[in-house]
Design a protein around this nucleic acid. Sequence first.
DNA 1: TAGTGGTCTAGACCACTAT
DNA 2: TAGTGGTCTAGACCACTAA
Lengths: 228, 228
Amino acid sequence: MITWQNIQTELLRRISERIWLPGELVPKEVELAAEFGCARATVNRAMREMANSGILSRKRKAGTRVAINPVRKATLDIPVIRLDIENRGASYRYLMLSREIIRPPPFIANRLTLGVDNELLHLRAVHFSDNQPFVYEERWVNPAAIPEILNADLSLESANEWLVHHALFTSGDISFSAHNATENEAEVFGIITGTALFVVERLTWLGTIPITSVCLSYAPGFKMHTDL
Amino acid sequence: MITWQNIQTELLRRISERIWLPGELVPKEVELAAEFGCARATVNRAMREMANSGILSRKRKAGTRVAINPVRKATLDIPVIRLDIENRGASYRYLMLSREIIRPPPFIANRLTLGVDNELLHLRAVHFSDNQPFVYEERWVNPAAIPEILNADLSLESANEWLVHHALFTSGDISFSAHNATENEAEVFGIITGTALFVVERLTWLGTIPITSVCLSYAPGFKMHTDL
DNA sequence: TAGTGGTCTAGACCACTAT
DNA sequence: TAGTGGTCTAGACCACTAA
């Protein structure tokens, strides 16, 4: 029996062996289905997934082409920090540094598309891996989106985890960058000010209501890794 | 007509409104198909994609559950650098700094799983965005994988682009990190040594043959961004 | 061993878009 | 307007795995 994976493998072979060149039109679904002796849906599944990974480029009526500039897609897993650490075989510990309900600075209010008058929950915490500081977290939570969090004991369960369990978001964005450690971060990590840190910023929404904005600074030397 | 997107939206609603709680068993495909009055394949498509994004967790015989710790998947586009720059509305310019065929240092040979005796093509280049240095590229190419590259004029077309057009890879890995600018990088970007730079390292393979290892340092302040 | 998801089929209609 | 991919259906068999 021909599976869609079989077809995908064969199509990938034809592309990587340059039997089908970048930009070239490839046979249409019906033709390939005939060639492989399978249903069109099977070919469709194979090619659709290849289009999703950026290897093929498909347009109705125009047909399917080998992508000229394959925009490869790297899929990064964004797990709960505790699991990330435990999966590396290390022990996890969490420490809340501060918790306050205050009006946010303008750039945070702006990022969350809220007025500066709305009071937000502001949290600072450290996640430890084998008792070494691994991630420094600075978070702002919109209580209007999820009032229950004001009663949660976030010194035991991290806000990261609490939110995952109590407030699934519907959309969000994430960005990765580098910055020089502030004095504050240098103290947390026991490093000198200015050391390059890998930073992840995340913003999540429930429908049109902003839930949380978080900035995670990783310990020096951290690499986020994935396969292509 | 019920589409798989309709179903996905409805299932997401039930999860985000906590009608279905994390860890909870959700109705099986046949039941949902009956409820929505559609074919099982349609429900399958909706749930399969949600499982791929980490929202559901599915096991044969055990059924489908709302993921307890949703490992959200962020999909990053890895385009050719020229397109990345042009898509930001900036002009692109490329400058090859050096090209030599030498034996690699041990850590590079090791990363490519090659002996230190194999001579490799070593390239250093800068990609400019609106005439500002945007990415500094340091690359090692294995000529055994793709001998034609030795004859390519890589001062005109970047190795990045040449490889995309002439050597589709079958597998690879990528990692993101931060490091303090070396003197060399500081000079390229016109910044002070030690400035935090966002770094992407990539390694690609054609079957079992290593093709290239590249290290890209982005200009200060660069953020890699995507939606969740 | 039985239940659930994974996939294939053959056919159909629809949506988009190049011409 | 016609051609191509996108999706749905109803039914079938299979693969994996919990019990």
